[in-house]
Simulated assay, not measured.
Amino acid sequence: MKTVNILVDCHVFDGNLQGTTTYLKGLYQEMIKDKTKMFFLAAFNVENLQTVFGIHSNVVYLRYSSQNKFFRLLFDIPKLITKNKIDYAHFQYIVPPIKKCNYIVTIHDVLFLDFPQYFPFLYQIKNKFLFKYSANKADVVLTVSQYSKEKIEEHFGISNVKIISNAIDLVYFEKYNKESEVQIVKNKFNIENYFLFVSRWEPRKNHHTLLKSFVENSYYKKYKMVFVGDDAIENKSYNQYYNSLDNTIKQQVVRLKNIGFQDLIHLVRASSVSIYPSFAEGFGIPPLETIAAGIPTVCSNTTAMSDFSFIGNCLFDPTSIEDLNLKIENALNDNLLQEKQNTVKIKYNWELSAQKLIELL
């Protein structure tokens, strides 16, 4: 039987951690266990890619000649597909215009079409065209949740979208010593006793409502508020509210950027409560990761996050600060953490997701 050659566009590993890096890492760490297939993992920083996936007999690392996205899509990828006799090439959101093999595209969400107020106008126009073009050109169209599947099919007029769910890295389920983790974070970041929100910075993530709750309920007298995530789109509502605060309160608010994976693990484990107040998500990995780590977790109940019904009385309406206040108190007294952790481990499993994709191919 002919070996199936699969190229994976891994250019996202050349930048900072984001949802697509988590997706590709989890999915293909499992996929490469299938020795009947050859995997060609392509990026500019191949050395970094090797640290993520390791050395395997059925994995070949390919280096892009440029970090420019247009050069990559127009020249690098078609050339690599032809040279390595690729059968399937897997992309995130956008496929190359020159088709040299079967295309797989994962479109994680189309939130900019349902929540245009949170996205720049040019971003909306450009990506509506590119995502729809890619969905129609690809042989296999994937997404990560039922919510995203329905929205992609509705907006792009297609009916063949398959769900390959996000899942949780097993490191989050590992047992750890809470006191040791607290000390590690205290030594490195000089913080302890804190609320945690992990997400890149943009208005739809709703940082401002969380900060208001933190201030209005005087949590700053006992806790710090730690925001972990890189800049994406400016949140003017947050900036205006934060600038109005007294300096004694501002000192309790911490922003951390460019955080590596191991430091993120420590920050999660050492936190007192994790809160995810986003207005809209195509999936929503961070609250599942903190639940997996045994951290009391509050999560928004909208869009794809409505699937997280097992979070129970710690789900809240992100438009209601009163509801958020109540659910933070519920989380601080949550006695169902072990049950929630078990649910996440069973339901959001990369082995299951990888097997679904193998069956699709």
Rank of each mutant, 00 (worst) to 15 (best):
Cys10Met: 15
Leu17Gln: 10
Gln18Gly: 09
Gln18Asn: 12
Thr21Ile: 08
Leu24His: 01
Leu24Glu: 02
Leu27Thr: 03
Tyr28Asn: 07
Met38Tyr: 12
Phe39Arg: 08
Ala43Val: 02
Val46Cys: 06
Leu49His: 05
Gln50Glu: 15
Val52Leu: 09
His56Met: 04
His56Gln: 10
Val59Ser: 00
Leu62Tyr: 06
Tyr64Ser: 06
Lys69Cys: 11
Phe70Arg: 12
Leu73Pro: 07
Phe75His: 11
Leu80Arg: 02
Ile81Ala: 10
Asn84Cys: 09
His90Tyr: 13
Gln92Asp: 07
Tyr93Lys: 04
Ile98Asn: 08
Ile104Met: 10
Thr106Lys: 08
Thr106Gly: 02
Phe115Glu: 02
Tyr123Glu: 01
Ser134Ile: 03
Ala135Leu: 14
Lys137Ala: 13
Val140Trp: 05
Glu153Arg: 13
Ile163Leu: 14
Ala167Ile: 11
Ala167Ser: 14
Glu174Asn: 14
Val182Gly: 01
Glu192Met: 09
Asn193Asp: 09
Glu202Phe: 02
Pro203Cys: 13
Pro203Thr: 14
His207Asn: 11
His208Pro: 04
Lys212Leu: 07
Ser213Arg: 02
Tyr223Asn: 00
Met225Tyr: 03
Phe227Trp: 01
Ile233Asp: 08
Glu234Met: 02
Gln240Ser: 07
Tyr241Trp: 04
Thr248Gly: 04
Val253Asp: 00
Ile259Tyr: 06
Asp263Asn: 03
Ile285Asp: 07
Val298Met: 05
Cys299Gln: 05
Asn301Leu: 11
Asp317Phe: 15
Asp317Lys: 10
Glu322Leu: 15
Ile328His: 02
Asp334Pro: 04
Asn335Trp: 10
Leu336Met: 13
Asn342Glu: 15
Lys347Gly: 07
Tyr348Pro: 05
Glu351Phe: 13
Leu352His: 14
Leu357Lys: 04
Leu361Cys: 07
